Simulated scan of single mutants.
Amino acid sequence: MPRVKKFNEEETLNKAMCLFWKNGFHATSMQDLVAYLGINRASIYDTYGGKKELFDKAFAHYRNKNRIQLTSFFKQQKSVKEGFRKLFEQGISEAVCDSEHKGCFVINVATELVPNDEEMLSVIQENKAFMLATFKDFLQSGVDSGEISPIKDLTNLASVLHTFFNGIKVVSKTDPQEKELITSVDTVLTLLD
């Protein structure tokens, strides 16, 4: 008869995500996971596989949550310009309030693993493609409503805004100066005028 799991898999995956996000893949040991998750090593292996498999699932969980949140966020916005302003300001606020200075999990993974991990490079590239397409679709809604000029190069704009959004997260990790970052938001949003 199979053993009954005495832990919530979703909750445990969320906790693993937070630990990997804070420490990175290499600096998180299996013993760290056992202690932080509060479950034994055998349960981790039985449920998720090894450390790498748990990391992959936790990272996929993070990306999926962010995609749902971003898509939902953009759908709620009445103005594209104000929507991007809110998105950037929210990113700044999260960074300034984050006492652990974790930054963005995707960026952290890219800088830690991509140079030597082709599989992870593919995952990061796919995530970037999703983000760019989502940004471009949101910009297109601004063109459709007359808020943004139809002569704008939406592909280029999406790329610049995505790069800026990632840049906010990198800069705020080491120097979370809210006033300076908000000034940068004002500057970059002039591209939508």
Score class of each variant (00 low, 15 high):
Lys81Pro: 04
Lys78Asn: 14
Ser72Thr: 14
Pro176Tyr: 03
Leu139Gly: 02
Ile124Thr: 01
Lys136Asn: 09
Ile107Val: 04
Thr47His: 10
Glu82Asn: 11
Ala110Val: 08
Tyr62Phe: 15
Lys22Phe: 13
Asp186Asn: 01
Asn64Glu: 07
Phe25Gly: 04
Ser145Glu: 06
Gly142Gln: 06
Leu181Cys: 05
His101Leu: 09
Val34Ser: 09
Gly83Leu: 06
Leu13Trp: 07
Asn40Thr: 09
Gln177Ser: 11
Ser141Asn: 05
Thr111Trp: 13
Asp144Arg: 07
Leu70Tyr: 10
Cys97Gln: 12
Ile148Leu: 15
Leu181Asp: 01
Phe84Trp: 02
Asn127Cys: 07
Gly83Ala: 07
Arg3Asn: 10
Gln31Glu: 15
Leu139Phe: 06
Gly50Ala: 05
Leu37Thr: 05
Gly167Ser: 13
Val80Tyr: 04
Glu180Ile: 01
Cys104Ala: 10
Lys52Asp: 13
Glu180Trp: 14
Asn127Tyr: 12
Ile182Met: 13
Leu139Cys: 06
Asp186Glu: 10
Lys78His: 01
Phe88Lys: 01
Phe130Cys: 14
Gln77Tyr: 10
Thr111Asn: 15
Tyr48Ala: 03
Ala129Gly: 00
Lys57Asp: 05
Lys6Val: 03
Phe73Ser: 09
Phe20His: 06
Ile44Ala: 06
Gly24Ala: 13
Asp117Pro: 11
Leu54Gln: 10
Asn156Ile: 00
His26Arg: 15
